[in-house]
Design a protein around this nucleic acid. Structure first.
Lengths: 200, 200, 200, 200
DNA sequence: CATGAATGAGACTTCATTCAT
DNA sequence: AATGAATGAAGTCTCATTCAT
């Protein structure tokens, strides 16, 4: 009874993940303690450990969910624009929005790779796979119209360059705590696109 | 007497910085405790704090020294190559060497920015300034021959793109734990250079 | 099972406060370390900090409890004696007992004020308030019968003098490590009482 | 050479004691570290230990010097006033001045007794002797004119009461962080004087 | 399934003191 | 006499985790 009107209507597990999403990203993994997570989730400590075997397990679950929502948002952003140029622009515009919302914290996945120095860690594996999945998105949902118009090798190169410029922009915006690298990379990305198209 | 063959012949402060250089980079800042640093430096805890007011101060001193040696190495690498193309290649080749030596740990400066979420931290300020200084190096020591052959605005764009591709490659190599993003970015960088040159 | 005869049957929080009551008073605040407190309480360090945010917070809690029991004891001592003279005597007699039990450590509250040089500290505020509360006790529970027999100003003076003599005796007994200042002050206090009464 | 114009012209030992006089009194003994003392004295650490075997030894030397200058000041204050009443007033007035100059830190000697819980400590012995010496001053330099006019026992009592009121005032001013206990005690002390005189 | 109390190990920092020069 | 570097012990406090209920 009384579960509907409880101040924490959503299920504990969800609240923990939401809190982790906020804190791990904003503060970093190491700087975010279990105590802060459970306190801001309104969950008892033992409840936390009944849902997640360890802090690192929570990290993985969080990364999974962050990827899911990130990819969904990404797909929405690039669904409408009618041309490749505009899809690339939408991609960068989305990142611009994230900075506005969350500050110069760069990419949550990359930051986790930085904090988990052990290359054998599941976190590192997830980040690696995540990056590959995003690369596929760039290939299939952003640049897909180019695939038929160029050599397979050229197309792959274009995808890699496009993605590399994107990641470079994210990282530089974070380290410089400024926006301009994003605009620079967007411009360069369009140039690259034009260049590869002109190959024909 | 016996000072030459002593197991800790060098001065403690130097040993601490050397150890920090190793551990902060390999393990990350948070995961590296003072205890490990002093233990591997062979220094007493109070000696550590007589040299460095706090762990964060050591981080700054370390970053300063890492920048110094990194920039020196960078300058040496790009001093000999006789053309802009080859200087860019040397730049990437140097990073390739670092991965061989230190693993897929990415850029030590960026990693620090990731661990220091507080944008007001001196560490963040240092990283920001470091990135700007490296950008200047790219402009003055790598791409300098292009400056007179193109419009100032174009030259600046070329510098930014070159640097952005470089940083993107570093980051992707780290997250993917593979080398290929470096080669891709090098190729793209050369393409970009050619493109900007062709503007004339 | 086995809960009754367990060596630490009482609750940890109580054990900590009891230990603090003993150690802070006997040794002083600075000389008493957290390590000693937890060791003699039979409590883990983290347990301590889950009950008290800091050592200073424990000090405040301890002072509060010491005041409570002190005031209770004080009230009991001065409840029975049928005359003002005998109540004053009981007041001093109680202190005499404390010295027998705890040695020449003076007043625990005053000692804390001596160790907390920062006048903004909550400890200083508590000690100040404590002294005022005790003064009220002297007025309402020791000298109350005099109130109606003298001018309000005279009564207040009498209270202040009575209390000042009391505190002076405590302090001198501590610094001299002898009992006689207590008897001297008692005698003087009675004399003062007589004097103020004679005003009529 | 160059010793005359040196920024620390006075001898190191003197500078240390001066600094200790300031810091031990203002902050308390425990809260004042050797590092702060040598830093504010402008003296090397090993120089400190060549002058004073330990921190506690410095405390004793400091107390000795503080007593010396305090007694000198005391004597000066009570030398001029032509009557016992005015000498008592001068005594309190001097304390009033100390509060103005140093804040509500009470009596430096008593505070040390509070911090040195070990009754065997030389510090405790010194404080005890100091209190006795001041009592002698009250007898010989403040109340001396009364000695011949009353019974020896009465005179001793008067001295004790006068001193006890004085100490009580000091302590209450410290704990209440207010001045009024001083005025109250002065008034009471004069009253006591009158009372004992009237015995004749 | 949920909980608050309790924990051992370790975090960063400072202490009074001594040593080699 | 004077020094700066170095020290072992101890300081307060936090970590991720587990247990009894």
């Amino acid at each position: 009874m009384m579960s509907i009107d409880s101040p924490h209507a959503s299920r504990p597990r969800e609240r923990i993940i939401e809190t982790a999403n906020r804190l791990f990203f904003r503060q970093g993994y190491c700087l975010t303690g279990i105590n802060q997570i459970i306190s801001e989730s309104g969950v008892a400590k033992a409840s936390f450990y009944s849902h997640f075997p360890s802090k690192e397990d929570l990290a993985i679950v969080w990364l999974r969910q962050r990827e899911e929502s990130w990819i969904q948002q990404f797909k929405e952003c690039i669904a409408q624009p009618p041309s490749t140029d505009k899809r690339i622009a939408a991609m960068y515009s989305m990142w611009y929005d994230q900075i506005r919302a969350e500050g110069y914290r760069g990419c949550g996945f990359i930051n986790m790779a930085g904090e988990f120095s052990n290359e054998e860690s599941p976190v590192r594996a997830f980040v690696r796979d995540h990056k590959n999945r995003v690369r596929q998105l760039v290939a299939n949902n952003v640049l897909h119209e180019c695939r038929s118009t160029m050599e397979p090798g050229d197309f792959d190169e274009l995808v890699d360059v496009t993605y590399s410029l994107f990641d470079g922009a994210i990282m530089q915006a974070q380290s410089l705590m400024q926006d301009w690298p994003i605009e620079v990379a967007l411009k360069a990305s369009i140039k690259m696109l034009t260049l590869y198209r002109a190959h024909e």
